[in-house]
Design a protein around this nucleic acid. Structure first.
Lengths: 207, 207
DNA sequence: CCCAACCCTTAACCTACTTCAAGGTTTTTT
DNA sequence: AAAAAACCTTGAAGTAGGTTAAGGGTTGGG
């Protein structure tokens, strides 16, 4: 009887909830109560191409889980040049964690590079999940550790490699993304001008 | 009676354990059981100047909490140039988290810039703490989130600022560290040659 | 299906930073 | 106290990458 109910509960979730649950369960199994509490707290949202999820100056209020599409977290410097910090595609999380935590205005923006659907969760709801189900502390610890490791490798590359090496690493590490986003975005991620990416490509292909 | 015992337990800890416990309790309160389990799992170690805590090619096996002194996590590139990823002084944590997690050989090294004392904890012991006391999941989640935010800001600076701006930011952000470590280390952290740091300083002082 | 907005490339010139080399100073080790 | 090692500065010459400007190609929104 219990097993039956369990099974029933599981299939009662919309497919998008199943997607996020599956993704979390790659790291830690969730009790049914944790799943249904999660399902009750996330909201499904759609965004058009170029639409903002977060604008510079606003406080980041949600953690976003991408179901379909592609988002970007970026910084605009005083000259108006954009610098990409992160891209998120299917099953990726994105937010300005600094702003989300401190509840201070963000210097970063998030927008959609493609029509995008997300599940998002607010800070207060997330805290409630942490308190009620320690599994979520665990999940976000692992998630953040992995993100930290990635950022550390990126700092390392930035201070020790040439632009060409950074470009090649990007193409190797994110081959799908590279076919999906314009080159100007890759340039802004690896920290060079789009013109110089052109030169790099020319140089590579002449080998 | 219970209160008395509690008090007694607390004072029974060596002063170094009290230091780390105090630091953790800035983020989340710990039960007495959590404290004593932690105390049973950390080891006190001393290192001489220049001594390795981790050598490139070895697997990183411990998370280190600095009691006194200064450590550095760095990468040596194919030309032999060193690039600092992180410094840790009193109450700071340091490890190659990537290697620690995946149990693969590290491309990074950790050594002591000063005679240094640490409390260190092994991976397996840490996992046991996580399982037994969810507070530790929480603590390390918050710790890693803050480290992640710092790394993200650093990537942002690297791709959007000049060397002089990076130097000034470093001096502002870590004024104590700047008086404590040689300039060559600052150079290796902000990603320029030590000669160029000299030129930056000259340029700044001539204003 | 068309037009505006975006996207990519090339080339000439410019600059922030590196490299190499040398000399003087401070710190560490013996 | 002396020797060795590490540290800092300066300058001349070189290079990776930026800037500006212009032309042609693609895309997506109406």
């Amino acid at each position: 009887m219990f097993v039956h109910y369990h099974f029933h509960l599981k299939n009662q979730f919309p497919v998008d909830i199943q997607t996020i649950v599956q993704h979390i369960e790659k790291i830690i199994p969730l009790e049914d109560r944790a799943k249904s509490d999660l399902a009750a707290k996330v909201a499904h949202k759609k965004f058009r191409r170029r639409q903002y999820l977060l604008q510079e100056g606003d406080v980041c209020r949600h953690y976003n889980f991408v179901l379909r599409g592609c988002l970007r977290l970026y910084f605009v410097d005083e000259k108006g040049t954009e610098h990409a910090l992160q891209f998120a595609t299917e099953n990726g999380w994105i937010a300005d964690i600094g702003s989300l935590h401190s509840e201070t205005p963000s210097r970063l923006s998030i927008d959609a590079l493609e029509p995008t659907e997300v599940l998002r969760i607010g800070k207060q709801d997330l805290i409630e999940l942490y308190v009620k189900h320690p599994a979520f502390d665990r999940y976000f610890r692992v998630l953040t550790e992995n993100a930290f490791i990635g950022m550390q490798q990126r700092v390392l590359q930035n201070i020790s490699s040439t632009a060409e090496e950074r470009y090649l690493t990007f193409m190797e590490k994110y081959p799908n993304l590279a076919n999906r986003i314009p080159q100007v975005q890759i340039a802004s991620f690896i920290g060079v001008t789009p013109e110089f990416v052109s030169k790099i490509r020319k140089n590579i292909s002449s080998k």
